[in-house]
Amino acid sequence: MWNFEFGFEFIPFLVTVLNWGIILTIAHFIYIKQNIKPKRWKVFVVIFVGIFAFHFSWQSSGTVLRFPILPLGVWILYGILKKKEGRWRTYRRFAWLGFWANVLFLATSLLSAQVQPLVYPPDEVSTYIADVQQAEALHVHPSADDLSVEHDLLTEQNWQEAPVQSVAWYEAHRDERERVDEQFPYLLKGYEPKWGSGAESRIYVEKDGKGLLISTAEQQYYFQAEQSVFQGEVE
């Protein structure tokens, strides 16, 4: 998460900061309202342990939702702290704050799942290809030709999403002598996704240079444009 280079996801990062901001603010108010003032670092530890819980996990469209069910951390803390008179009462609220933080995490993860596609639309080329300074097309099939990629045509064009023609492409282009041209004989290399998207993708370029097939861990998208990204042959 602290990796600011490839794969850095800005929204989950923001959510984490937000979560802890809220938790620490609430903890602060509990602390000043309470008469008994324990050591602050002990409060931290209690909150941390309080977070520990048994979860029911549910996955919906790529987002994992974790519903807290059993407050295991709170029980552990109770078991330890009850031994000394009044100690549990000192920390009780902080332990439960830890547990309820799980609900906050759940709510904010739902929220970030809503916001993520608004900031980084999964059906737009610009999410996957933002910086193309080093872009080149690798040959991954013998039907590829020595062509150089015009960087501006990757980013400045109006790419339209189109349906993936899986069966038609699979049938491919065979001639009577069983020679085959691959529909996507190039693999794009040397591009960066939009900052903070963390969008890892594999991008094939169509043989006429007018199509991009973008595979992510979740899905595959196909985009078409007017002009070929290839401009002339490599010298």
């Binding site: 099939h141 023609q165 899986s166 069966v167 492409w169 691959e182 097939l213 595959q220």
Partner: peptide, 12 residues
Amino acid sequence: GVKTYMPGVQMK
């Protein structure tokens, strides 16, 4: 209903 295509790859 989601279609995916995996291009044939042959590098030498």
